[in-house]
Design a protein around this nucleic acid. Structure first.
Length: 287
DNA sequence: CCCACGACCTGTGGGC
DNA sequence: TGCCCACAGGTCGTGG
């Protein structure tokens, strides 16, 4: 599920509950997610204070008052739920929700003020690890990550050199986290449709001006999605603590057979498998 | 180095 | 209603 905007929304939801708080109880209800949890996972985290909750690409990074950083990736189906004991809810905070589905509630954190954060992940493509903070930039998950798309490091020059001589479509290359970090299947489809670039054409042949536009549209679609996630978060905060999913209106994703929404375009959205993933696009205006 | 494809897991929705 | 298959927002490893 989660691409950069969703992970950012989850970060924003968890930060007030976790940042500056001490974990008084940590439960790993199974020994592994996608990978085995570290042997000392519960031991290291119990009693640790989370000093800062950040995001890099699709990773959540919880800095600790310990040597390690808790790194979390939601995979495809990971999500968090926040709960507070009944009677302690305050405006803008989270109510105690329903009993969780225990089958997929894999990790539980509790803080010194009684907040409970539960990680659910039916498919278990997500993972958590403890990584030494001082050398985290050398860790394989981070060493080769490309720039954050919303930072100044990401621009048309970088895309141009990453695309040079490449025959794969821009769709496939934009999913490569070494080129730009945080995009996934949905937002790549959305950005290419807005830019009217074909997902399938050789990436190396896309002109610089069109790459400028692509950078621009990537930034816009992510920013809009984060804003939508923020408002979803406010709604959730009044109902229950589910975090991680929000439904956004997409212009191509999931709209096979429906009209293209670009101005004056008479095309119909199509879906094709590309590198094992569904690509949604308009065959008429995306060239 | 480049690229395509299968694997990892479980749930769900559409078609029959 | 029930069954079965295709597919799901992400990475990683293999082999050509």
């Amino acid at each position: 599920m989660p691409e950069l905007p969703e992970v950012e929304t989850v970060r924003g939801g968890l930060a007030p509950v976790l940042e500056g708080h001490r974990l008084t109880r940590v439960e790993a209800r199974r020994p592994d997610l996608r990978f085995p949890l570290p042997e000392n996972f519960v031991q290291v985290l119990t009693g640790a204070t989370i000093t800062r909750l950040a995001r890099r690409a699709k990773y959540l990074m919880a800095s600790l008052d310990r040597e390690d950083t808790l790194v979390m990736h939601l995979g495809m189906s990971g999500r968090f739920e926040i709960a507070r004991p009944e009677g302690t809810e305050r405006p803008g905070q989270f109510l105690y929700a329903r009993e969780p589905d225990p089958k997929h509630a894999h990790i539980v954190f509790e803080t010194e003020v009684g907040a409970r954060v539960t990680y659910y992940d039916p498919r278990r493509f997500g993972y958590m690890a403890l990584v030494n903070s001082a050398t985290i930039h050398l860790h394989p998950w981070f060493a080769e990550l490309g720039p954050e798309p919303l930072s100044d490091d990401f621009d048309a020059d970088r895309l141009k050199s990453a695309f040079r001589d490449r025959k794969q479509g821009p769709k496939t290359l934009l999913l490569d986290q070494r080129i730009v970090a945080g995009l996934g299947n949905i937002y790549v489809c959305e950005a290419l449709n807005r830019t009217k670039i074909s997902p399938f054409r050789a990436a190396g042949g896309v002109s610089k001006p069109r790459l400028e536009k692509l950078v621009d549209e990537i930034r816009k679609v992510l920013t809009e999605a984060i804003a939508a996630g923020g408002s979803t978060l406010r709604d959730y905060a009044q109902a229950d603590g589910a975090l991680g999913y929000f439904q956004h209106r997409f212009r191509v994703y999931g709209r096979e057979g429906e009209p293209c929404l670009n101005d004056l375009c008479i095309g119909v959205i199509a879906r094709k498998m590309q590198a094992g993933r569904s690509t949604f696009y308009c065959p008429v205006c995306q060239r």
